[in-house]
Design a protein around this nucleic acid. Structure first.
Lengths: 228, 228
DNA sequence: ACCTGAACACCGTTCAAGT
DNA sequence: ACCTGAACACCGTTCAAGT
C-alpha cells in the first residue's frame, strides 16, 4: 500500500522552489523554465499558476531561498558597536558566499523583484543601524551601506559571469583591434592578479572601502569635537 | 526613378545596431528581438544571420556602441600622474553616464560577451597603467581597478534596475513579514538618502573608494621609505 | 552575395474543462 | 481546491531555396 512517490501531485510551493534550484544548479538559469520545473514534479506547466502568480514570483522565492540558506538571516549586530569595520567585512563575505553557492546565483537574486530579495533589504537595514550606532549619521550610514552593497554586487556578478560555459582565454578573441596597448599589458596585470584567490581579491576591495569609511567617520567627528 | 527607401535591402551592420538601439530606448531590452529589428529594416529575421553570427553578436556590438558613443574612447591618461585620484573619479562618471544614456544600458553591457565590451577592458587597462604610474605596483593597480569598476558596475546596475516599469513604494509590498525592525527604520534612512541625486550618491561612494586607495598607497610607500 | 519561406524546438501565459 | 489540454502569441535558429 506504499504511497507511490510524486504520482498523485499535491504540489507544495517549497517543492517547486526546490526543484527550480536543482535545475538551476545542474543546468543553469536559462534551463529553469516552467515546463522543466513542472515535469520534475510530475505535473503540467500551467499547474504552477495555481501556486504562483507568474514566473517572476518563482524567481523571487528562489532568490530569497538562496540567501536564507546562505545564512543571511543569522547575521546579528556586533556585540561591540566599535567593531563595525570587521563586522561589515564578515557580512559582505556571507553575502558573497550565499550567492556563489548556487550556479547563476547572482543573476537570480538580481532578477528578483523590488529591492532584490526581502532579506537583502533587511540585511541592508541592519547594516545601516550598525553604522549609525558606530557614529555615522543617518545619511552617511545609508550612503556607506549602499556603497558597500553595490561593490559586493558588482564583484559577485562579475565573478560569476566569468564562470560562463566557454572558458576561452578571456579577452583576446577577435584580435583585429590592436588598440595600441594590446593585450600584452593587460596580460601582465592579469598574471599578477591571478596569484590571489577570488575571495582574497574580494576581501582586498572590501577593506579598501572600509578603510575609506573609517576616514570619513574620523573626519566628521573631528569637525565637531576637534579633540586636542 | 527615386530609390524607394529601405525597399531594396542592402542591410549594413551599423544600421542593424542603430535599429536595435532605437528599439532598446523606446521599448526596453525584452523587445529587442531579431524579428523586431528585422522588421524595422524591412527585412526578414533570418537575414540578420548573414551579417551576425547570432543574437549575442548583436548584443556585443550594441554594448560597444553604447560605450563608444558615451565617450569611453576619448579618455586619456592624466597630464600629471599624481592627479590619479581625480582622474579615476572622472573616468567612473563617464562610464556611468555612458551606460545610463540608454534604457537598460547596464543589462546590455553586462550581457555582452567576454569581459563585457572590448572598450571596457581597454578602459580598465588604461586605469591600471595610470595607477601604476602613480606608484601602485602591478598587483595593487589591478586590484584597485577591479574594485573601482565593480563598484561602478554594482551601482549603475542597481540604479537602472530601480527604474523598472512599476514604481511601487519600494520595499514594502507583502507586509506579512513584520521582521522586528519593520520598514519604519528603513524609511528613515531612505528619506535621508533621497535628498541627494543619484549622481551625488555615486560620487560619494566613489570618493570613499579613492580615499581608501590613497591610504593603501601611502602605507605601501611608507613601508619602503619610512620618511621621518 | 544576400535574402526569403517554412519549419523546428522551444518559451510564458490564459482559460475552459475536468475531477 | 487543484490540475489538465489545448491553444495563443511569441522566441532564436537552421536551411533549402530563390535572385
Amino acid at each position: 500500500m506504499r504511497v507511490r512517490a510524486a504520482r498523485a501531485p499535491h504540489i507544495e510551493p517549497e517543492a517547486v522552489i526546490r526543484a527550480a534550484l536543482e535545475i538551476l544548479d545542474s543546468e543553469g538559469l536559462e534551463h529553469v523554465t516552467l515546463r522543466r520545473i513542472a515535469s520534475k514534479l510530475g505535473v503540467q506547466a500551467p499547474a504552477l499558476y495555481w501556486h504562483f502568480k507568474d514566473k517572476q514570483d518563482i524567481i523571487d522565492d528562489m532568490a530569497q531561498a538562496i540567501l536564507v540558506e546562505g545564512g543571511l538571516e543569522e547575521i546579528k549586530r556586533p556585540a561591540d558597536a566599535a567593531a563595525w569595520a570587521d563586522w561589515m567585512v564578515e557580512t559582505a563575505h556571507v553575502v558573497r558566499k550565499a550567492v556563489l553557492s548556487h550556479k547563476d546565483g547572482a543573476r537570480v537574486v538580481s532578477g528578483a523583484s523590488p529591492f532584490r530579495a526581502r532579506i537583502l533589504a533587511e540585511a541592508a537595514t541592519l547594516t545601516m543601524q550598525v553604522l549609525n550606532d558606530a557614529g555615522f549619521d543617518l545619511l552617511h550610514a545609508a550612503l556607506a551601506t549602499v556603497t558597500t552593497f553595490d561593490y559586493v554586487w558588482g564583484y559577485v556578478t562579475a565573478e560569476q559571469a566569468g564562470e560562463g560555459p566557454e572558458s576561452e582565454p578571456t579577452s583576446l578573441r577577435r584580435s583585429g583591434g590592436a588598440s595600441t596597448f594590446g593585450s600584452g599589458m593587460m596580460d601582465a596585470f592579469m598574471t599578477e592578479i591571478d596569484i590571489l584567490s577570488s575571495a582574497e581579491k574580494f576581501d582586498w576591495g572590501l577593506r579598501i572601502i572600509v578603510s575609506g569609511l573609517k576616514s570619513a567617520l574620523l573626519d566628521s567627528t573631528n569637525n565637531i569635537k576637534t579633540k586636542t
